[in-house]
Design a protein around this nucleic acid. Structure first.
Lengths: 141, 141
DNA sequence: GTCACTGCAAAGTGTTTGCATCGCG
DNA sequence: CGCGATGCAAACACTTTGCAGTGAC
């Protein structure tokens, strides 16, 4: 999806298309992958735009509720956000330096889990798969 | 492992066996599964023991570092802790009521991922697999 | 013009830290 | 009795909330 398409989507679901929302979406498009609210704040500032954390959080929450953004609680009490549906992937995360490496395999799809979970009367919407350990560099130190 | 064995393990790795540590371990043994620091605090209080959050956090951190306890960052900025190695399982989590249901299947083991990840020069130590959605009751509401 | 949204400040929640005292080994 | 552990208070980091003013439609 392009920026304009995201903008249109927002209006379609009855949200006002404010300058701040455009900037947040632009920043997420221009910087693929997951970012903390802090990182998004910095990226917004780099575009010479002033914005408060509350605006960022409120909009990330809104975008998450509308499935435009995905919220990941990967590391100790810090949420990461990324545009949803652009690509589906999981992570290998270094316990020492915090580096996150994407992996393409998805055990959920490969093992046909969706049907199994539905048979438990559970309606799955999304899933998370993460492997922790030490990356190449950190394991050598 | 029994309580006494956990106590011994602590001494073996050079930690003092304080009353507070015994209580935390006892509480974790008596209440299998994952708990927040808050829940552990309440469980400790129910045993008529007074303990500060700092003591709980410091010890959970210590036990986590020594792989006696596993720390899970599952939900929005709240860590959950549980005794490690008692049983290996993953979770199905309801987005509405927060209920966590254990599932026994492990995609990591079933797909022989350990070797694949090692071939990336990454040393895996643990992993997390979670499926989010709506549980039976919440999806009916 | 209306109402959703933002700026700003202040509070809230979960967690960590500093320091004096305590108690395990 | 020495040093690691705890009690307690205070700080911290991330996030949410309340309210008045602003701007999209």
């Amino acid at each position: 999806m392009t920026g304009t398409e995201f903008y249109k989507h927002l209006k379609d679901i009855g949200c006002k298309l404010t300058e701040q929302r455009k900037i947040i979406i632009d920043v997420l498009i221009e910087n693929p992958g997951h970012h903390t609210a802090e990182e998004i704040f910095t990226l917004v500032k780099n575009k010479n735009s002033k914005m408060y954390f509350s605006t960022i959080y409120r909009n990330l929450e809104l975008l998450t509720n509308h499935k435009i953004v995905e919220k990941l609680s990967i590391v100790d009490g810090v949420n990461h956000y990324e545009l949803n549906g652009l690509d589906h992937h999981h992570h290998v995360i270094c316990n020492k330096c915090g580096q996150m490496i994407q992996i393409d395999m998805c055990p959920y799809i490969e093992n046909h889990l969706a049907e199994k979970i539905k048979s438990m009367n559970f309606r799955p919407t999304n899933h998370k798969f993460e492997i922790y350990g030490l990356c190449d560099r950190c394991s050598k130190e």
